[in-house]
């Protein structure tokens, strides 16, 4: 019985961490738009459309982030944001065909390991509306 409860808690925690990473991914979409925006002629229609898109993405991110920090300790949720480095690097390789140096790759691996270590701590989640 206790084991089942523990399993359920772990499953919920993993699901929340995946959701949190999706929100970090939304945040990194901004860097893709910003990169495209630099290619648009300044003050052209395209230029303004890219900036409007950036504001929209930031808005969606802000709304989702606010819902997510209900479920985590703030320090844990914030540490998860560092994974933006992985997602941004992924977009630069996949979309912009840029290459990564060994040093950059090593840095990304360290950030991923660090984030996993923070997430492995027990009791990093909070219940909705809980006063700590």
């Amino acid at each position: 019985m206790e084991q089942t409860v523990l399993k359920d808690m772990n499953r919920k925690k993993i699901l929340n961490i995946i959701l949190l990473q999706f929100i970090v991914i939304i945040y990194t979409i901004n860097s893709i738009i910003a990169k495209f925006a630099t290619k648009a002629e300044p003050l052209s229609l395209k230029f303004f459309l890219f900036y409007a898109a950036e504001v929209c993405v930031l808005g969606v991110y802000a709304i989702c982030w606010q819902q997510m920090i209900k479920r985590f300790e703030l320090s844990v949720a914030y540490a998860n944001r560092s994974m933006a480095i992985l997602w941004t690097a992924l977009w630069s390789v996949l979309i912009f065909k840029e290459s990564l140096s060994v040093k950059q790759l090593a840095g990304i691996i360290l950030v991923v390991i660090g984030t996993i270590v923070v997430n492995l701590q027990p009791g990093s989640e909070t219940k909705e509306g809980e006063e700590r």
């Binding site: 540490a79 560092s82 991923v112 660090g114």
Partner: peptide, 10 residues
Amino acid sequence: IGIIIILAGI
């Protein structure tokens, strides 16, 4: 430890 590793990575 996790935050120290993250900072080292950055």
